[in-house]
Amino acid sequence: MPRGVWPATLAPVAQVLDHGLDLDTVTVFVGENGAGKSTLVEAIALAFGMGPEGGSTMSGHSTRPSESPLWEHLALHREPGAPKSGFFLRAETMHGLFTFLEQHPGARPEPVFHERSHGESFLDFVIDRSQWPGLWILDEPESALSFQGCLALIGLLQAIVDDGLGQVVLSTHSPVLAAFPGATIHEVGEWGLRRSAWADLDLVRNQRAFLNAPEQYLRHLDAAADGTRPPTQ
């Protein structure tokens, strides 16, 4: 992929194209909006054969193509005997995926996910497929989940990993999900990818500082609204 063409203009994408990336049993990407983490996990899912809007390998689910061509330039290498199946679940397109599943039922009955709440249906999907071995890729699942829901998702995915049934790749803005036990965390930004400890993440430091003194951040929003000062801390 030419380095002057998006998404290779993003430092994390260029780093992966130039040097590759080893995925661990649980790999977590964190970073600001637009940094490239969702672009990376989407490309991994597509290179593995999953639908761009979610689903299993060979699902074929797609409504409005918007994915980058990055996946065409990635080569995934599996360990001998590794499962070839997988699941891609992204919060922004999950309801479209659930409609696709209703319209294309498999041989076995499964939950009607639309009859559950946003977060409940997300967790139900993981529960329903938790006995299928493979690669689990989740893009910002906290969009569908409460605090307790995030903890429940970690528990479900941890059980899948502990049973030797899966490998997890996760993109998130949630410090809760980023705390996945034993995960390798990559902080994504203008520097590219850098491995980080949970406590050292900007995500964790910023949210901890906000929770300790929210007024220090919120007062700048009022100042920005009346034009007296920029919204910086």
Score class of each variant (00 low, 15 high):
232 T>R: 13
82 A>N: 05
223 A>G: 09
84 K>R: 14
206 N>R: 00
153 L>F: 04
82 A>Q: 12
118 H>W: 09
180 F>I: 04
18 D>Y: 10
142 E>W: 05
55 G>W: 01
84 K>I: 12
7 P>C: 07
105 P>L: 15
8 A>E: 02
156 L>E: 12
166 G>T: 10
100 F>G: 10
15 Q>C: 02
73 H>T: 14
22 D>V: 09
7 P>W: 01
200 D>L: 06
31 G>N: 04
201 L>M: 09
190 E>Y: 04
194 R>V: 15
49 G>C: 05
75 A>M: 12
157 L>S: 07
175 P>K: 08
166 G>A: 06
19 H>F: 14
34 G>R: 08
201 L>Q: 10
32 E>F: 01
68 S>V: 07
137 I>P: 10
179 A>F: 05
128 D>K: 03
20 G>Q: 02
135 L>Q: 10
204 V>K: 06
173 H>E: 06
163 D>N: 12
8 A>G: 01
219 R>S: 15
197 A>C: 09
76 L>E: 08
148 Q>C: 09
221 L>C: 09
74 L>F: 04
172 T>P: 09
190 E>C: 06
173 H>A: 08
85 S>K: 06
37 K>T: 11
176 V>H: 02
214 P>W: 06
3 R>H: 04
158 Q>M: 04
22 D>I: 02
118 H>L: 11
132 W>A: 05
52 P>F: 01
64 R>M: 06
114 H>D: 14
129 R>G: 14
8 A>I: 00
1 M>T: 13
70 L>E: 03
44 I>Y: 08
100 F>W: 04
124 D>V: 03
23 L>G: 14
58 M>P: 03
217 Y>G: 02
164 G>V: 01
138 L>T: 13
159 A>Q: 00
159 A>V: 04
13 V>K: 06
61 H>V: 05
12 P>Y: 01
188 V>H: 03
189 G>Y: 05
218 L>W: 09
85 S>V: 06
198 W>M: 07
50 M>T: 07
79 E>H: 03
197 A>Y: 06
173 H>D: 03
194 R>T: 15
233 Q>W: 15
24 D>Q: 12
130 S>I: 01
83 P>S: 08
72 E>Q: 14
41 V>T: 15
26 V>P: 03
21 L>P: 10
66 S>L: 01
148 Q>A: 14
117 S>R: 15
10 L>P: 03
67 E>D: 13
171 S>E: 05
166 G>L: 09
75 A>Q: 13
196 S>K: 15
61 H>P: 00
30 V>E: 02
104 H>T: 11
64 R>A: 11
206 N>E: 00
128 D>R: 05
32 E>C: 07
34 G>L: 07
62 S>F: 10
205 R>K: 12
124 D>H: 07
149 G>W: 03
139 D>N: 14
193 L>I: 05
195 R>H: 15
112 V>A: 15
38 S>D: 03
149 G>I: 07
8 A>M: 03
179 A>V: 02
219 R>L: 14
210 F>I: 03
